[in-house]
Amino acid sequence: MSRKLFVLMIIGLLLLTGCTMPVQTGSINAAGEWEPDRSIEVIAPSAAGGGWDTTARMLARTIDEENLSDQGFGVVNKPGGGGAVGWAYIHKRNDPHNLFISSPPIHFVKQNGQSPYGYDDFTPIANLIADYGAFAVRDDARWDTLGELFEEMKESPENITVVGNSSPGSMDHMQFIMFADAAGVDITKIRYVSDQEGGAMTGVLNGSIDVISTGVLDAAEQARAGKMKVLGITAPERLKGDEFLETLPTGREQGIDAEFIVWRGIFGPPDMTEEQLTYYEDIIKETSESEAFADIRNRYGWDERFMDSEEFKDFLDEQSVEIEALLKELGFITE
């Protein structure tokens, strides 16, 4: 009996592999507006708990609670390859009911050759929030400004080590490179150590590493306690809203012409119609302007930075060019 069972099942398998979940395109109503056919999947190309996942969940939650859409927004995790697995999935399905959250790593992962798809393979819908990086040293370190640090790095780059949470060629590394490059340091000689298991801050506190390149909030907390000093942040101008954060100097005011915005925005599949784009753009704009979302921004320490599709795209183009040039110089991109 078992043999018959197998034959039957293998036939079943062959039949089934041919079909997948159907891609739906929605419809246009009388007013010329696009209407989705089913609930929207917001994909976080990472596991539960990270930055993309949190943003996605907060976005979906606000939209549902404030009734900003007549369709439900649900979050689906597609982790893997630093986002590459999720991007490949969305690109392949090309379904206007799939959106995803992204941030600067989409540049790095693509340009480092770890994903066939980059930001320009998708439709940027809108940017939602911004975050910034910071460079900090131990409280008793010999540098007080970014200028002093970079001056020493110009003379003897081999004496100074930099640590970050991300792998080389990705965010923490490249935001430091960007500033060092603007200050005239030989960026190929910078010693960058990657610590993805939570040891980065420890390394700086115990003196085995000199500088940490990380997010503003991480560094600020140690600085507030007097254990570290923040030499500079990557925001274009000083942060507002918190007494202590206001005291952190930007790179620009120290004469270093660089900025790095850790944006988080929403993308759609490659081929979207004008109507679909407008539909989503409106929802995200309303979310961004809602009080509920302002409250969430405050909780997480995110900055409001809404950009519509066009503005977002221009911004991404610009950031991409800048990053590409630096990655080339460091040898991550080889022709």
Binding site: F6, M9, I10, L13, L16, T17, C19, T20, M21
Partner: peptide, 14 residues
């Protein structure tokens, strides 16, 4: 094993 492989293959479809 064949049953497991079948399960994996069609899980996301069915």
């Amino acid at each position: 094993m064949v049953l497991i492989l079948l399960y994996i293959t069609v899980l996301e479809v069915v």
